[in-house]
Amino acid sequence: MNNREKEDYLREYSILKGEGKSFFPYAIAKDGSMAVITMLVIIVLTLALGAELGPKADATTTSFSPRPEWYFFFLFELLRVVKPPELTFLATMGIPTICLVLLLLLPFFDRSPERNPLKRPIATLAGITTIVAMAYLTLLGALGGSPTEIELQAAGQEDGKQATASSGCLGCHRIGENGNEIGPELTEVGARLPREAIARTLVNPTQPMPSYAKLQKQDPEKFQDMVDFLASLK
C-alpha cells in the first residue's frame, strides 16, 4: 500500500467506524454470548468424553503408541507424505518452519490494499487449500490403524511378534496389513537389512524414532526376540 492508499483506507475506516455502534453494550453482548457458548461446549465435551488416562509411562517396556494430541496429527502425518529417510528433516522441521515463516511475514508480502476475499483470489485460494490440506492430514492421522496388532503369519516367531506388537513400532511402521506409514514399511525388512543392522537401528535410530537402548539393557531377551522377528520378515 502506498501513502495514498493508506490515507484512503484510514478515511474510509473512520467513516465506517463512525457509522457503527458503541462497544458497550452491543459488541460486548455478542462476546459475552460467545463466552457462554465456549464454556458450554467445554463442559459438554468433558461430560461426554471424560478425561482418560493411559497406563503409567514406562521407559523400558513399551506397549505405547506415540500419538500426539489430535491437533498435531497434521504435523505428524507430514512424515507419511515425505518418504525418503534423507528428507525426513524436511517433514519434521523444514516444511513446518517454512509455513510458519510465510504465515508470520504474510502482511509484508501481501501488501495490496484489497481486503474483500472475493477480490483476492490468490490469497483466498491459498487459504482454502491450506485448510483442506490440514483437514485431510488430520483425518489421515485419526484413521491410522491401531498400533498393537500384527496379523502376519510368521511361523515360530510368536514371542518376537508379541514383543514387536507391544513396542509401538506399528504407530509409525507398516507390517503386512497393519500399522501406519509414517516410517518405512517393515514387511520385508529382513530382505533389506541384516540382523545386526536391524539391532543397530533399534538402539541408535535415525530421528525421530525413539531408541530401544533401554529395552536392550533391561530385557535383552525380549529385544533379541524382536530383532529375530524383524530379521525373519522377508
Partner: peptide, 14 residues
C-alpha cells in the same frame, strides 16, 4: 502415561 510420554519422546526427537 504411556501415550503422552512416548509422544513427547518423538516430539523432542523431531
Amino acid at each position: 502415561d504411556q501415550r503422552g510420554f512416548w509422544a513427547t519422546v518423538v516430539a523432542v526427537n523431531i
